[in-house]
């Protein structure tokens, strides 16, 4: 009971700070915070499919690109909230269509297929732009201020965390995790594996679509090569692993740490930071297979997180 109070208080303070950042901080701090929230949203939504079912997707960034392009296409035609929401919904449909055949493929083949799929989307778009529209890239004029965009990203980010949390606690979440542990056994026990994976894939696409919509307004100029950059997808995956994909707070920690760290490094060592990041990632993979969240969880000190540990251990230990 006492622990729950502390936890609630910590979360409340954190939320208050997040809410106040654009009011009290400088533009630059707001932009850094916006960036962190964007990656948290990306990594948490990625977790809904990859973390729960074990189907590692390297195509998550493609939905961000689709969302960005959707906004650019209907910019100043539709009102902003509808535009953002529709960007997410479009991605859900795209995911539902491509997910149906793709999710039948397993293991490393699935990973490669998702990578190929995002490249396919990129080149289809380039073909469309070049041959049908006769140009590549779009400029968005009169975009909202960074403070407005920050609140949009904050809402989307919190929604993605809440969704992941609710799914994890639901029957649906249990079904997903049973797929991760052993798909055949899960099927035998009556879980419709194909259906639950399909649903998870569609839900996880909703958030990057909306994030892409907001980020397009921030970047103000988009072209297929930048919004469908495969590095986006890799970075999401790296962040989730850094934080630990067995934990809900893993991607949050991973995204925050990696964004802050790279921020810190590029600002001070412009010629050196890629090297440093590489070393850190090797270190994490070698010594922290459970990620930073696993490291925190394994410590006896923070009583706060003990409850999580018990929950997670019981789910992941018997692999």
């Amino acid at each position: 009971m006492h622990m729950n109070y502390i936890k609630t208080a910590v979360i409340a303070v954190l939320l208050l700070v997040l809410f106040l950042i654009p009011q009290i901080a400088t533009t630059y701090t707001t932009s850094v915070a916006l960036n962190i929230l964007m990656w948290i949203g990306m990594a948490t939504s990625w977790l809904i499919l990859a973390g729960f079912t074990g189907y590692i997707s390297l195509g998550h960034g493609a939905f961000l690109g689709i969302g960005a392009y959707f906004v650019a296409s209907y910019w100043q035609i539709l009102p902003l909230p509808i535009l953002i929401l529709l960007s997410g919904i479009v991605c859900v449909f795209v995911a539902a269509i491509v997910g149906y055949p793709v999710l039948r493929v397993k293991g490393p083949y699935f990973v490669i297929l998702t990578l190929g799929l995002s490249e396919f989307v990129k080149y289809s778009l380039i073909y469309y732009e070049v041959n049908i529209r006769g140009t590549v890239g779009r400029i968005l004029l009169k975009t909202p201020s960074i403070e407005d965009l920050y609140y949009w990203i904050l809402v989307i980010c919190l929604l993605s965390i809440a969704t992941a949390y609710l799914i994890k606690r639901s029957r649906f979440g249990l079904a997903l995790m049973s797929v991760k542990d052993d798909e055949e056994v899960a099927e035998a026990l009556g879980v419709n594996a194909a259906l639950v994976k399909w649903k998870a894939f569609a839900i996880s696409a909703f958030f990057p679509g909306m994030i892409g919509a907001v980020m397009a307004m921030r970047w103000t100029y988009i072209d297929p090569y930048t919004v469908f950059n495969p590095m986006m997808s890799f970075q999401v995956t790296i962040m989730a692993f850094l934080g630990g994909i067995a934990y809900l707070h893993g991607p949050i920690i991973g995204a925050t740490m990696l964004t802050l760290l790279s921020q810190y490094l590029w600002a001070r060592y412009p010629n050196f930071y890629m090297f440093a990041l590489g070393v850190i990632l090797i270190f994490v993979v070698m010594f922290l297979p459970q990620g930073l969240a696993g490291l925190i969880s394994n410590m006896k000190l923070p009583v706060l997180l003990n409850k999580y540990k018990v929950e997670n251990k019981s789910l992941t230990k018997e692999k």
Partner: peptide, 22 residues
């Protein structure tokens, strides 16, 4: 005063914000 933008629009926008405000 310069930083590597990694050929990314996201980085470039953040860097110019930093250059001007920080």
């Amino acid at each position: 005063v310069y930083y590597d933008d990694q050929s990314s629009t996201d980085m470039a926008t953040r860097i110019y914000e930093k250059l001007v405000t920080e």
